[in-house]
Amino acid sequence: MMKILVVDDEADVRTLFEQRFRREIRSGQFAFSFAYSGEEALDYLHAHASEVVLILSDINMPGMSGLELLRHIREEYPAPPPPQVMMITAYGDQESHDQALRLGANDFLTKPVDFAALKAKLAAMEPHEN
C-alpha cells in the first residue's frame, strides 16, 4: 500500500480524491491522508514520518506556502528514501515550476488536476517502490 499525503487549503479536495481513487482505496492500493495547510502537513509528517511515500501539495496556501513546506521536508527528511513530493498549482508559470524543481520537487502538476495523468504517474511510481 502506498501512503499519500495531500496538502491543500480547499477542504473539498478530500472528497474529490476519495471519490477519484475510490477503487484504488477500496482495493488497498493507495491510502490517503489530508492536511489543510503547510503547518498541518509538517505536524502530520512529524507523527507519521516513515509511512508517507508521496506528498501532493498545493503551492498557493495562506500561511506556509507549498514551496516552503517542500523546503522544510527536504531539510528535515534527507535520509533515503526521501518522500516523493509533487507540487500542484493553479498558476502554471515557469518561475514557480523552476523554483519547485530547484527546491527538490519530483514533479509539478497544474490545476485542474488531470486525474488520469496523475494515476498514470502514481502507477509508474509503484515499481520504484517495490
Binding site: E10, D12, L16, Q19, R20, N60, A90, Y91, K111, P112, V113, F115
Partner: peptide, 17 residues
C-alpha cells in the same frame, strides 16, 4: 481568475467523478 478557477475546477472534477 484564480478565485473563479478554483470553484470551476471543483465543478469540473465533481461532474467527471
Amino acid at each position: 481568475a484564480h478565485e473563479i478557477q478554483n470553484p470551476l475546477n471543483f465543478v469540473t472534477n465533481f461532474s467527471d467523478v
